[in-house]
Design a protein around this nucleic acid. Structure first.
Lengths: 261, 261
DNA sequence: CGAACTTTTGATATCACTCAAGGGACGTGG
DNA sequence: CCACGTCCCTTGAGTGATATCAAAAGTTCG
């Protein structure tokens, strides 16, 4: 797989009034991890107040670059990806609205992988100084954000299991369910499906399979009546079926009942 | 692969006077990330003052358990592992002396994977309250420990690449080099080798290969004069050869020149 | 309306798995 | 000290899942 990404080209700042509160996916995500005060919401809204637009298939942060802040994805879908010397690409994770990355980026000298937009995206940057200020103020937001990062780690481990011990059809089924649950958590899935802007090449680079085999595996999933998929819109026809096929256990995505402290 | 682990059976506390300073692997590891004051060293020594012994092939922390503290591995080798419903096991990471895990465990309700000793180990537990105290005191140790955790994350991503896009021989070569570098960093590798207590079953569960194929791949590595291995002692005969074979790039293990802030 | 991507299909190749069994090494109990 | 069980490593033979190569058909979009 070649990497089909062009360079930054970060769009200019765009302000969307709907960012305020209710529809902010960052707020929606963090609410799963603990109650937010009005002030917390205000801070998070402020973080997302000045997003920039990124075109599909362009890089949001480049491998080897010096981190300049944390990113929050507000709209669209993105991924962490790494290009190997032999031209092979491995996608390491998907980012959906409400996800952020590089909370501790200030501690790092250089990125060791890229963040790239799969669809066109709206992204906000949170400066490291803002994060430091929150930390210094002992804001309850910091543990909430750390919990979200712990879930991201759990997702990464689950991907390792995906690649290490599941068959092609199980890998794809598992990935589709992961994204279904994550999109549901921020209110962006339809009843039984969602927009999945990833191409079959992207899916191949995510699952460690060849493009051809991804294609055939998708056909098999359709043939079994588990999914439908056309023009990047995924309908999951049989969630329990996919779940048992892939051994999906949603608990790793859930924060658990603890309320911190 | 079946999981060959028995239950906790945490040995009684053992105090080894050599833990003080110079030989403490936690101190040795963190020194790579920034300078330590005498007080920092004292705190870290204190953390490791009362280690417990764990027998080979036993679990240090169980999947599904409620976290009770962070762990530091002082001696031996351990792994993160996850047992799947179908009996399959995936090893997610190796822990070498100086590694700790679950720095943010207090934010988690339940573990989603186990920590298991590969050899007999000495392990110290750091209570979450001690970590909270350090955080409250704005100790410079916290960012240092977070940096170490960021390297652990980078290792996990590299494993994903290993499983997703490398061949059997490349995977094993890469793993051997990762461990060589990590053990060197804490002064526990010999000139060109180290003790690797993992069995071929463990290597299979780490690399997503079958035991039989691991065996044959090891023979091939020996045949090519790249390694020697007998009774769990690994000699790397040709580091550059292994490096180019596996596409190993050690930068992900290095903290980078930054000095924090 | 043509260039560049995607998706799809067919044919063939291969890497790695499974099954099966033999041979150490090590520890335990008789 | 020998007998036996239990791992672990090794080998052989056969199979299978997935990759590769090549090319056609469909899409998107400037």
């Amino acid at each position: 797989m070649r990497a089909p990404f062009s360079n930054p080209g970060q769009g200019s700042g765009i302000h969307d009034p709907r960012d305020g509160n209710g529809t902010n996916p960052l707020i929606r995500r963090l609410e799963h991890f603990g109650a937010l005060t009005a002030e917390d919401r205000a801070i998070l809204s402020e973080f997302c107040a000045d997003p920039f637009a990124v075109g599909a298939r362009t890089e949001i942060a480049q491998d080897g670059a010096r981190p300049t802040g944390a990113f929050v994805l507000l709209d669209g879908m993105a991924c962490r990806s790494k290009l190997r010397a032999d031209g092979t690409r491995q996608i390491l994770a998907y980012l959906v609205p409400g996800d952020f990355c590089d909370l501790d980026g200030a501690l790092l000298d250089r990125r060791d992988h890229a963040i790239a937009a799969l669809s066109s995206c709206r992204v906000a940057r949170i400066g490291f100084d803002a994060i430091r200020d929150l930390t210094a103020a002992r804001s309850a937001l910091i543990p909430l954000m750390r919990r979200a990062s712990l879930v991201d780690d759990a997702i990464l481990r689950e991907w390792l299991i995906n690649l290490g011990s599941r068959s092609a059809i199980e890998r794809i089924a598992h990935l589709f369910l992961e994204l279904l649950m994550r999109l549901r958590a921020v209110g962006l899935a339809r009843a039984d499906g969602y927009d999945l802007p990833a191409s079959q090449v992207d899916l191949a680079d995510s699952t460690g399979l060849s493009t051809v085999h991804v294609n055939r595996t998708l056909q098999e999933l359709k043939r079994r009546g588990l999914i439908e998929m056309r023009s990047r819109i995924l309908q999951i026809r049989n969630v329990p079926g996919l779940t048992s096929l892939s051994g999906f256990d949603p608990r790793y995505l859930a924060p658990g009942p603890t309320v911190g402290r």
